[in-house]
Design a protein around this nucleic acid. Structure first.
Lengths: 191, 191
DNA sequence: GTGTACCTGTGACAATCATCACAAACTAAA
DNA sequence: TTTAGTTTGTGATGATTGTCACAGGTACAC
């Protein structure tokens, strides 16, 4: 990958770690860039996940199919990492699909290549650890949405904490994410 | 810490990594052992979390206080790690309390000491990364409980996937964990 | 054993939310 | 602009769950 110093990912890594140029080169050398159109998938439910993703542009909608209905479990916007770690680490089929919500630019790290780099370079493994920390903190936060708040409170939480989500994602998609019927969210919003 | 090779934690680490004796010694040398009685806390809501915990014996109930009511967000049994990563890494007050559900033996890793060890030994940082992977996989799984399942399905999920939880934790505590009223869970269970 | 404190079961009722049906509003392409 | 397709708003109704009240059970201390 060329000219990587202009990317959001580069800034993110610099922000997260104090990696040497050598390690940065190694890391960016193994990245795959993907452009995916709206409604295209980058990981399918039932397939084993082999990558860690970084959203450089656009956003991903992560959902699971339950009895023919799609339930959104997450939205990942620019400047964030994501993966299905359970599938990645245990080599079991993913229970979620990763789909572009807009035309998106995604950077992919191959799991096996990354693990090999960890052994080569402690700096890169340190990056891997910090990446996981970010994922875990985000996940802790989201899980609390459901454990602590009632539907109306969840919507208010998004208003104050994730306003960009409300702007960029349609009401029906958000309702699935918040675990309420579309009609219910419509009524909550009227207030 | 002496005789650590008899502990669950030792087996866990051996299982997770291929650490040298030297690193194992370093790691176990900085562990603090705590015996906590039932209903005693090992981390209080409002306090900054400075430790990663391993439950060698007994179990921890993790809850958050909302408007005077306790909402259980997790139960951590023997042979598992836990922490409040958001509080630990961002140095902000914890939004949860960690309380013993039985007389418990807890091993504590101090965050600052662990971070220092990471710099000393890539092997230990590798352990840190794998520890985070475990936490994240557990969290992914638990979050799905709420996003995908209805109350009755959540109970069935526990029956098949976490039977020990149903045996060791009282109905009212479980109901708080599942996000339903005690009475509702009582009725679900009758079926 | 006896009492006290805590936990669980159960009925009645209220509140919340899901579902269904359809109208209105919006969007994008011809 | 027109039109077809998608998304959102809204009313009616039923199902699920929460809340309140109280009875019965269980466990532990004295």
């Amino acid at each position: 990958m060329k000219d990587y110093k202009k990317t959001l990912l580069y800034k993110k890594i610099i922000d997260l770690t104090d990696m040497t140029e050598l390690s940065l080169d190694k890391l960016f050398n193994v990245i795959t860039i993907k452009q995916i159109k709206k409604h295209e998938n980058i990981l399918n439910q039932g397939i084993i996940c082999r990558n860690i993703f970084f959203v450089e542009n656009g956003y991903l909608r992560i959902y699971t199919d339950k009895d023919g209905k799609e339930i959104n479990t997450d939205f990942i916007f620019e400047n964030s990492f994501t993966t299905n770690l359970k599938s990645l680490r245990l080599a079991i089929p993913s229970d979620t699909t990763f789909q572009a919500g807009e035309l998106s630019t995604i950077y992919e790290f191959d799991k096996d290549i990354l693990l090999a780099l960890y052994k080569e370079s402690p700096e890169i493994e340190s990056f891997g650890r910090k990446l996981l920390e970010q994922l875990l903190i985000a996940q802790e936060e989201h899980a609390n949405l459901f454990k602590i708040f009632k539907p109306e409170e969840r919507y208010k939480y998004l208003q104050t904490n994730k306003p960009e989500l409300l702007q960029r994602v349609s009401l029906s998609q958000i309702s699935s994410y918040l675990g309420v019927a579309r009609e219910t969210l419509s009524r909550i919003r009227k207030k």
